[in-house]
Design a protein around this nucleic acid. Structure first.
Lengths: 346, 346
DNA sequence: GTGAAAGCGCTAACAT
DNA sequence: ATGTTAGCGCTTTCAC
């Protein structure tokens, strides 16, 4: 053997396949993309040669020539909050049969970071963008407006959209939870959440919640915030802390199910009578709640459906048949579970 | 106003910026990439024009011309198993300062799907590939070998690698857990896992576990498998089921922490004496364990470190200073927690 | 320090 | 049914 480096030094091109099977580059291209009429024998020869050589097409060149890119940019705040992987699941599923591929970027709940990620991703000229929330930097909004592609803002509908929106009203979600709590007769209500000034959806839920309480003349009696660490453990600690400070609380509203689950575990261990002495509720409808000792009251954020429908809009297959900007508000259903009592005090 | 459509109909090109500021395309390109010497005044004019127009460079053209792509392909089995988002976190963090960007694909634990995803992603000519596990289709292996870029297989070291590997030995992890269980005096051991023939790491842990037990003359007394649904709830149900079938079991080994957590909740509610009557262990070292009533015994899979180091290898910044293929086996530490008793029966 | 020409690997559009 | 030509928007290379 005279040459140990006889393997592919240079990545193969169409030309290599073309030469290997004696068919023009153009025809090879047609076969590989399954476009135009190619005779069966030619087609077979091309396919055989491409496979034998291990040819992988260069989408960069293809995209530049065709001005088409089968990529959909998805920008979400986080991957460790299970909510977003679930949205992604919906997006992937809906994109499956369309030939479009999601490409994910993460903003870590920071608008500046989101802008940077968007800039980076838009420079690959994707066919569409799906991003969480309605709050973006001015520059990001301009970029998206000028991109000339479908833009779908997801999860939240409380605000002005760039193009299409699909989500729920977190303000309403908070308000409805407050209504249910008041109706059940709870009066000394605590709120526990994460310390994330840029989690606009959590903020809106809190605002709606306060509105709802206010309508019944109730005010939040105590609050507790956390950052970092295991949400389940934090939920426990915060609950212990808030109850130590204010033992008179008869309801705890958590900004997400994970800390709510921690709170539930704490209350049960502390021997508190849930939901009679104290009621609890979270938000999201996370799967994990199903394995808990009691079903925590919650409100489903419709994550999967939001992902699916956003993808359909980008793919131009929205069931609505609309082509222009769509605006869809989903209505999350309150699930009382076992942690809100079923009748008021009266 | 005579023209409502005066906005950018066509995406801006270098030429547009060039014309807007009276500087050649070439110089504009230099400024935007921060390469080569450009006088300060020229640079400012270019930057100003680019910003004013809202120019976003076309990376497709750039990549084609320069033959360089700052993308790193990452293929993982799933996003809903929290393990993988954590690996991703490590990868992103390590790639942060390198100018490289991770692009994620999901295989759903199916080798065929992995092959398809790889083909799709390799056609964008990334600078490197990180993928989970050592088991791939023949075609996938060939593609990776021929790609001429760094390939890092992660999570598992039990098998033959294509290029670099970084992970733990799941076989060893299983064996060490078995040793600890036997040493603690448990003898009637049950195994509970997911029904995923293609989860090779879980399979290897089980094999190593059986080996370890066998060395002490112990055999697995009962098994229980699940698929789909909430892992926490499934863990509960499976535990109840396996104990109903075989009440004599004194230890339950779960293939992951989530079902283990469910099992723990079940045992505590059932009033079983953990860890004396029955011991429990999971696998992964998930954060969620911190909030549970007891600390479940587990073994950390070093997810974050694996991600970080894989990224360093791809970026050519491995602390080892090596340039060729690396092979790194991390050693997970057994954490007994509160669910394995501390001394044997003797 | 700046510009002009060539070409990256593919596909659209037009032959044949 | 197959081939030819031009060019996608950039960067490389070389000239000035």
């Amino acid at each position: 053997m005279t040459d140990d480096f006889s393997g592919p030094r240079r990545r193969l091109t169409l030309r290599d396949v073309s030469e290997a099977c004696g068919v023009s580059e153009m025809t090879v291209s047609r076969v590989l993309r399954d476009r135009g009429d190619v005779s069966a024998p030619t087609r077979d020869r091309v396919l055989e040669a491409a496979k034998r050589l291990g040819y992988v097409p260069n989408k960069i060149a293809g995209a530049l020539a065709s001005q088409r890119v089968n990529l959909v940019t998805v920008v979400i705040p986080s991957l460790s909050n299970m909510v977003f992987p679930e949205v992604l699941g919906g997006i992937s599923a809906a994109l499956e049969e369309t030939g479009l591929q999601p490409v994910v970027g993460v903003s870590h709940y920071a608008a500046e970071r989101e802008e940077a990620v968007l800039y980076e991703m838009l420079s690959w000229r994707p066919s569409g963008v799906i991003l969480a929330g309605l709050e973006h930097t001015e520059a990001a909004r301009r970029m998206l407006e000028n991109a000339g592609i479908p833009v779908v803002e997801i999860m939240d509908v409380d605000g002005a959209a760039i193009d299409s929106v699909i989500g729920i009203s977190h303000r309403r979600a908070g308000r409805e939870m407050a209504d249910a709590i008041v109706a059940a007769g709870y009066r000394r209500v605590g709120f526990l959440g994460s310390m994330m000034p840029d989690d606009h959806r959590a903020r809106k839920r809190l605002e709606g919640f306060e509105e709802g309480l206010a309508a019944a003349g109730v005010e939040i009696a105590a609050t507790e915030f956390y950052s970092g660490g295991s949400a389940l453990a934090k939920g426990r600690q915060m609950t212990q802390a808030i109850l130590a400070r204010d033992p008179g609380l008869d309801f705890l509203y958590y900004s997400n199910d994970m800390i709510g689950a921690g709170g539930l575990l704490h209350c049960l261990e502390a021997g508190l009578d849930v939901p009679n002495t104290i009621g609890l509720a979270g938000f999201n409808g996370l799967e994990i709640l199903e394995g808990l000792p009691r079903r925590l009251a919650t409100m489903d954020a419709c994550r999967r459906e939001i992902g699916e429908r956003a993808a359909q809009i980008v793919a131009g297959r929205s069931p609505s048949g609309l082509v222009g900007a769509e605006r869809v508000e989903l209505s999350p259903v309150l699930q009382l579970g076992d942690t809100i009592r079923r009748h008021g005090r009266d």
